[in-house]
Design a protein around this nucleic acid. Structure first.
Lengths: 242, 242
DNA sequence: CGCGAGCTTGATGCCGATCAATGCATGTGG
DNA sequence: CCACATGCATTGATCGGCATCAAGCTCGCG
C-alpha cells in the first residue's frame, strides 16, 4: 500500500508539449499557453501496476496522461469491479473527484507511465480569467459524459461481438489520432480487464477474439492484434445482429 | 415534429425558488442569488411525451427541471435505444450538448413539466465572476460522471434483481430528498423504459416486480409501488448473489 | 362499450457464464 | 541451462438467466 510517489522536478510545459492539441491546451494561442505552463508544473511517474489514485483519496488535482496507459475502475461493496475506461496520452484523469473532493474510482497504470499534475484550484482560477480554457475544460467534462452514455448503450443493448468490435474500433481510432498504426496494436490490458469494461467474462472475450480471427477480421496472437478488415469490424460495431 | 414551444414570460427567479438547495444555486448567498436570477430568466413548459430537445439539436442552453419528470436516451444507428437517465425537480438537463455544441441525446417529458432555461454562454460568463457558481457547476458535471460510472457498474456486473432493486432505492432516495414519501411512488415511466435503462427486457422487469412482491419487498399495482421492506431492497441492491 | 397501450404470465430457446483442463510465455532459483 | 512456478490465454462441456414468443389481462379513454 505504501507506493513511493516519484515526482519529477522537470519543467512540464504545455507550450512545448507535442500532445497539446489532444489535451487541455487544444486550440490555445502561445500567450495562453504560457498561462497554462504555470498550472501544469509538475510531473509524476507511475510504474506499471501502481495506482495514480484510489477511490477515497482526497482530490486535489487532475492528471493528464503524458506517456503510458491507464485503466479506471469502480468497485461495488461486495468487491465486484467494473472497469470504467482506458486512458492514453493526452487524456484527463480524475474528473470523478471534483464532485465530492474525493476520488470515486481507482486509476491504475497498465504500463510505466508519466502524468502531468494539474492542481484543480489553480485550473479553476485560471479558467476564470481565460475563457478559452474554461470552454475547453467544460467541453472535456461534457465529452466524458457523452462517452459514458455510449458505454451505457453498449452495455445495455449490444451483444458480445458488437461490444468487442466497438471497443477495438474505438481503441484503434484513438491510437491513430496519436500517430500509431490504425491496424496493429499491442494491447496493454488483460482479457479480464477488457471483459470487465465490456460487461463480459474473460472467456467470452477470448472466444470472441478467436471468432473474429476465424472470420478473417483480425489476427490475434495473445495481446498482439492486427486488424485485417477494419470495415467489417466497424459494421459489427454499430449494426444490429442481422 | 413541429411541437409548439411554449415559453413562459413569468419571471423565473432562483432567489425565490424552493428548489434552490437542490439545484444550481445550492449554497449561494442572497447577493449571489440575484446574479443568478439574471441567468435564469425564462421558463418553458413541455407536455407529456414531447421532447425538450433531441439528439442533433443545436445546444445553447441547459435546463433545470422545475416540475415534472424526464427521461434521456441515446440511440444507436440501427435504432436501438438506451435510456441514460431519469430526471426530476432540481436536476440539470443538457450537459451532453456542451462538448459538440449539439445535443447528443433526446430528453422527453414523462409528464407535463416545466423547466428553467439557463443560457450556457451566460452561465459561463457569470461563473467566471462568481467562483462559487463555478465550483457548483463543476461539481454538478462531475456528479453526473460519477453517476454514469455507477450505472456502468450496474449494467456490467449486476443481475436483474440487483439492477431493479438499485434503481428503486435510488429513485426513492431522490424522491425523499424532495419531500415525497420514501415508501410509495407512482412510477412515471413504463416497464419498457425501466428495462431500457437497466439493460433488461420489459418482461424481465415485470417478472422481477412480481418476484419482489412475492418476497414481500413491494406491493405492486401497475405503476403504483409501495415499498414494504426498504432494507431488504437495499441489501439486494448492493450485495452479491449469495 | 370497445379499443389500444401497457402489464402480467407462461413456455421455450439461446447467449454468455461457469467449471475445468490445457497451452503458452516469462521469470526464478537450483 | 533446465525444472518449475506463475500469470494469462485458449478451448471444450455444461448450465442457467434472461430473451423471445405468445397469450391473456387491466385500465383509461374516446
Amino acid at each position: 500500500m505504501s507506493t513511493t510517489i516519484r515526482l519529477e522536478p522537470l519543467k512540464a510545459a504545455c507550450s512545448t508539449c507535442n500532445l497539446r492539441e489532444l489535451c487541455l491546451p487544444v486550440g490555445m494561442s502561445s500567450e495562453q499557453l504560457e498561462r497554462l505552463d504555470v498550472l501544469v508544473s509538475t510531473r509524476r511517474s507511475v510504474a506499471r501496476g501502481d495506482p495514480l489514485f484510489r477511490s477515497g483519496d482526497a482530490f486535489t488535482s487532475l492528471y493528464a496522461v503524458r506517456t503510458g496507459f491507464f485503466k479506471t475502475s469502480v468497485a461495488a461493496e461486495d468487491g465486484r469491479e467494473q472497469v470504467t475506461g482506458f486512458q492514453m496520452a493526452g487524456e484527463l484523469l480524475g474528473l470523478d473527484g471534483i464532485s465530492s473532493e474525493r476520488h470515486s474510482c481507482d486509476a491504475i497504470a497498465l504500463e510505466d507511465s508519466t502524468v502531468c499534475i494539474i492542481r484543480f484550484r489553480e485550473l479553476e482560477a485560471v479558467s476564470r480569467e481565460l475563457s478559452d480554457l474554461q470552454r475547453v475544460f467544460h467541453k472535456i467534462m461534457s465529452r466524458e459524459i457523452v462517452r459514458d452514455h455510449g458505454v451505457m448503450l453498449l452495455l445495455g443493448s449490444m451483444r458480445a461481438e458488437e461490444r468487442l468490435a466497438a471497443f477495438l474500433v474505438n481503441l484503434m481510432q484513438r491510437l491513430h489520432l496519436r500517430g500509431f498504426s490504425q491496424t496493429a496494436v499491442m494491447l496493454r490490458m488483460t482479457r479480464e480487464e477488457i471483459g470487465s469494461y465490456l460487461g463480459l467474462k474473460l472467456e467470452t472475450v477470448s472466444r470472441t477474439f478467436s471468432k473474429f480471427q476465424d472470420d478473417g477480421l483480425l489476427e490475434v496472437k495473445q495481446r498482439d492484434i492486427r486488424v485485417l478488415n477494419l470495415d467489417g469490424l466497424k459494421r459489427l460495431a454499430t449494426s444490429p445482429n442481422c
